[in-house]
Simulated assay, not measured.
Amino acid sequence: MTFTPRTHRLADLTWPEIDELRPHAPVAIVPLGATEQHGLGMAQRTDTTRAEAVADMVARRMSPQVVVAPAIPVGMSEHHMGFPGTLTLSADTLQRVVADVVTSLHRHGWRRIFVLTGHGGNNSAVDTVVSRLRAELTDTHLAWSGVTPVVSDLVKQHADSPVRGHSCEIETSQAMYVDPDLVLSERLTRGSATLDDLDPAGRLGRSHPGFHFPQAYDVLSPTGNLGNPRLATPELGALLIDTVVDRICGFLTGLIGLPDRLPAPPPARIALETS
């Protein structure tokens, strides 16, 4: 008999339902987003909504094998603080929040946990905390990814702006597909889309691949976005997001198939010789 949960969202279930679902759902997804400016025509919750929407689509596709934790709606957005309304956490705070959520899931029996971030600014903190947790939770398979990087090959094929990455045609297309209410199409404005649009520091950083020279977005672009969101279409968004879901489902299927990790053995005792 196939087990069919009422929903895959932990926050919408009662604890007895979760207790019943847990043996059938080996994977827990933790969506991680941001509350930050997205140019003149896109809502501040865009990154959170994209992560949550992808997690929901994956869970529905793989039901009942995947549950989804509540999305973490604020991330590392210091580089967007030049625009009103952006909220940010420090790297230390974000890592502690992710660690506490993952540890809570571990304490309730989940041993395959996937952190999905919709905001690239979270990447360094997530990579660090996942690496640390893997060492601490030695019986748990932990992994993470972004949304757009999973389809970087498609981005190269379909992006038109030489300079892009935040509220550009790629991200705006995804937003149009997962939640049209995120986008005010009449307000979309071309941002810094070529190297010539950037100031000298921005041009230096963007013209030398492999070098990290981050700049605040109010310096990079007066509108807060890069690329040209006016080129966005929901059809492109569907292609990108549906492929992201396909690839994450493939990865998580492989994760479920892995042998369980074993708890670390207790440290060896050293016998002290007595004379």
Rank of each mutant, 00 (worst) to 15 (best):
L87I: 13
L89A: 13
T35I: 08
A143F: 01
I113H: 08
P64H: 04
A71P: 04
H38N: 10
E78A: 15
T46R: 12
L133E: 12
V126N: 10
G146W: 10
D47L: 04
V98K: 03
V129E: 13
S77L: 10
T49G: 03
M76Q: 06
S131F: 05
H106C: 00
S161Y: 03
T49F: 00
G120R: 03
Q157N: 06
H166L: 09
A99T: 12
T48I: 01
R111L: 03
G39Y: 12
V98H: 11
A69V: 10
L89I: 05
A51W: 12
V155R: 04
V147Y: 03
H80W: 06
H119R: 11
S131E: 09
V102K: 09
V68F: 08
G41V: 03
I72A: 04
S167K: 07
S145Q: 10
P84R: 07
D56F: 01
G39H: 01
G39L: 07
T138H: 14
T140N: 05
V74L: 10
A59G: 01
V97L: 14
A69P: 06
N123A: 15
G41K: 12
N123Y: 03
V130S: 08
V68R: 08
V129G: 11
D92P: 00
R164P: 00
D153V: 04
W144H: 15
L137M: 12
M76I: 14
A159M: 01
G39P: 04
R45W: 08
T49K: 11
V58T: 10
L154F: 11
D56P: 00
R164Y: 15
N123S: 13
V147I: 15
P64G: 05
A55P: 01
R112N: 01
S167I: 05
G121Y: 05
T35K: 08
A59P: 07
D56Y: 05
C168S: 15
H38T: 05
L133M: 15
P64W: 06
H79G: 00
D47C: 15
R107Y: 02
P149V: 11
T86H: 05
T86W: 05
I113W: 05
D127C: 04
A91W: 09
G120M: 11
L94Y: 08
L105D: 05
V150W: 08
H166N: 13
V68M: 02
N122E: 12
P64R: 02
V67H: 07
M81F: 11
Q157W: 00
Q44S: 05
S90L: 01
K156Y: 01
D47Q: 04
L133H: 12
I72C: 03
D56Q: 07
L116M: 14
T140Q: 02
W144E: 02
L105V: 03
T48K: 06
G165D: 04
S124W: 02
T93A: 15
H166V: 13
H141L: 15
V98I: 15
D127M: 12
H38E: 10
W144I: 00
F83C: 00
L137G: 10
V68T: 11
R96E: 14
G109I: 02
E78V: 07
